[in-house]
């Protein structure tokens, strides 16, 4: 017989004396009683699950300030325009090529006419945010991105700017 079967018969020491059978029965009862004791203890511990998405508003989860969620473009409040200078660094750096920037204007007035991010293709690596020379693109803690149609996952410049308006840049960890 091969090794696996030998171990089964010798390893568990099944000699047939009445004493060893009794000992086995007692051992079994004790170990199972212990297992039940553990489940009983855990019965009184607090629940950690949330009934997402049917959650209680008091339990509403807010991720930390460093969370890599949906994208936003930040508006320069003083100048009243987007910070983005349409340099397309993010577009070149993205490993999945999920960003498209259409620049407009020349020199200092260069701005993005269109800015698309395919969030469905994005893998939240934050490389685009890191390469941005003017800190115009950022990721926000918004994590609820589910939609019914995958085409809705393509963010355009309007959506990105709106999200940037609500974004708290000061506390962002990066």
């Amino acid at each position: 017989m091969d090794a696996g079967l030998d171990m089964r018969t010798t390893g568990t020491k099944s000699d047939d004396s009445i004493l060893s059978i009794l000992r086995l029965i007692v051992q079994g009862i004790v170990s199972i009683a212990k297992s039940h004791w553990v489940t009983l203890v855990n019965f009184w511990r607090p629940t950690v699950c949330e009934r997402y998405p049917h959650k209680d508003k008091s339990l509403d989860y807010k991720p930390g300030p460093g969370y890599k969620g949906d994208f936003a473009l930040i508006t320069d409040k003083e100048k009243g325009r987007l910070r983005c200078i349409a340099c397309q660094s993010c577009e070149r750096a993205c490993p999945n090529h999920c960003i498209r920037v259409v620049p407009a204007g020349k020199g200092k007035d260069r701005y993005p006419a269109e800015f698309y991010i395919d969030v469905g293709l994005c893998m939240n690596c934050e490389i685009c945010v890191e390469v941005c020379p003017v800190d115009a693109l950022t990721m926000t803690p918004d994590y609820e991105c589910s939609v019914h149609d995958p085409r809705d996952l393509i963010r355009n410049i309007k959506q990105l700017t709106e999200r940037g308006m609500e974004f708290d840049e000061v506390s962002r960890v990066r």
Binding site: L24, Q27, G28, S31, I32, K34, S35, W37, V38, T39, V41, N42
Partner: peptide, 11 residues
């Protein structure tokens, strides 16, 4: 605790 629950469980 988990040892009691699983590892030391005779079954």
């Amino acid at each position: 605790e988990y040892n009691d629950l699983l590892t030391n469980n005779i079954i």
